[in-house]
């Protein structure tokens, strides 16, 4: 009976153990493979992808879990073969500093430019003194407006 239960699913799916057999295990496989990038279809995670390599790597993850490996060990194994690129959450190191710090640096620069601009503008707005020329022009404009009203 148990033999039948083991062999039957392979008739339908090429990826062996069915979810029902060990849901805890499958949950861990899914969680880990969501963190790992499929290298064939680079914008999908291992869990999203149907590429053959993604299936193989999921199988590898499953077997490593069954062997009692920790998540960290499995991640380290994948990084050893495929590099940090396989992680969707790349570690902070010399080559990824720009990636991690860049957005904050841009935000800071933006904030600085904005505050500079606002300070400059306040100075313009709060300085109401008009030169003699400007006064003359304002008078002319007001007079013109009055005339056209009539």
């Amino acid at each position: 009976m148990s033999l039948l239960a083991l062999s039957a699913p392979s008739l339908f799916a090429e990826e062996a153990p069915p979810v029902a057999e060990n849901p805890e295990l499958e949950k861990r496989v899914m969680r880990l493979s969501e963190e790992l990038r499929c290298l064939v279809c680079q914008n999908q995670s291992l869990s999203d992808s149907n590429a053959v390599l993604a299936k193989d790597l999921r199988k590898q993850v499953r077997e490593m879990i069954q062997d009692g490996k920790t998540d960290a060990q499995i991640r380290a194994y994948m990084v050893a073969s495929y590099g940090d690129f396989i992680l969707y959450d790349p570690p902070l190191q010399a080559t990824t500093v720009v990636l991690w710090v860049g957005p904050f640096a841009l935000l800071l620069i933006g904030a600085m430019l904005l505050s500079m601009y606002l300070k400059q503008r306040r100075r313009i707005v709060t300085d109401p003194t008009l030169s003699e020329d400007e006064r003359e022009r304002a008078r002319a404009l007001l007079a013109e407006a009055r005339n056209s009203d009539q």
């Binding site: 290298l39 064939v40 390599l53 193989d56 073969s81 495929y82 590099g83």
Partner: peptide, 13 residues
């Protein structure tokens, strides 16, 4: 045959 050594060598294409 199973692509296991391929994984160890980081083969993806």
């Amino acid at each position: 045959a199973e692509g296991r050594t391929g994984i160890e060598y980081g083969v993806y294409g």
